[in-house]
Simulated scan of single mutants.
Amino acid sequence: MVDPSHTGKHIQYVTNFQDFVSAPFKGDINAICWTRTLRGDFSEIVKQVALTGNITEIGPEEICDLPLSEQGQLAREILLNDLKILNAHGASPIINVVKCYDRDDTYPFFPTDVYSFHVDRSPIPVDTILCTYYGAPSEILPNTQGQKKILIPEIRDRLRKLYQGADDDFESFLSEHFFDLHYQAMPDAHPISLGLGNMWRLAVDHPESLVPACIHRAPDEKGLHRLLMIC
């Protein structure tokens, strides 16, 4: 469950799928959480999947074919049902077993991988939906507790030195390399764990968005493979 002592005003909590998909982002609300306590042993599924790399996608047929105990079967039913209801809603969910994500060391002073606090961007109206069933969950950061990295003077100065083009195109350079999507947590920031089993909708930066995009990051896996649904 989500620790209520670390929740923010930008989160709306719901108790069913219909409210989850229909609750609007408005005002300060840019994250919707369907709080759930799930039954079953999701670690069984992780252990049974044959990994093909750092991120292994598993489809419904493969999930159905896994030899599982009774507790594993309960977990499987939840995964399949989540896929079913999200597909029926028009989303395109995928289930991944994540060993780790690629690290970005192109610019050591400014990594742009998913372990950095960032927002998602899309040219069309869309939300990010995710649920961690096993392993370390993702984190979100209240927008009031994060600062856009490109606005931090010392970082901006280093980016200008890196940039070789005309001044008028500097902002385009920042966008093209995704620098403008990343945030630095303030010293007194309190990141919020998304918890296990909860399904989340996060606001995305798109032309029709009425709220700031939700700042989030992937966790340190701490040696555990994650079982993650995302769309």
Results as ranks from 00 to 15, higher is better:
I95Q: 01
N96P: 01
Y101W: 07
K84G: 02
V98I: 15
I94V: 11
C100G: 11
I78N: 14
P111M: 04
D104R: 08
L86S: 00
L83S: 04
K99R: 13
Y107I: 15
D104V: 07
K84C: 10
I85C: 04
V97N: 00
N87L: 11
I78L: 11
D102I: 09
H89Q: 01
L86P: 03
L79N: 10
I78S: 13
Y107A: 09
Y107F: 15
A91M: 05
F109K: 02
D82Q: 14
A88H: 14
A88G: 06
I95M: 05
L86M: 11
L80V: 09
D102Q: 11
P111C: 02
N87H: 08
N87S: 11
N87A: 11
C100K: 12
P93E: 05
H89S: 03
H89T: 01
D82L: 11
D105G: 10
N81G: 10
P108W: 03
P93D: 03
V97F: 05
T106E: 14
P93I: 02
F109W: 13
V97P: 03
A91S: 08
C100W: 11
F110E: 01
R103H: 05
N96K: 06
Y107H: 08
D104Y: 03
L79W: 01
I94R: 06
L86C: 09
F110S: 07
C100Q: 14
T106L: 09
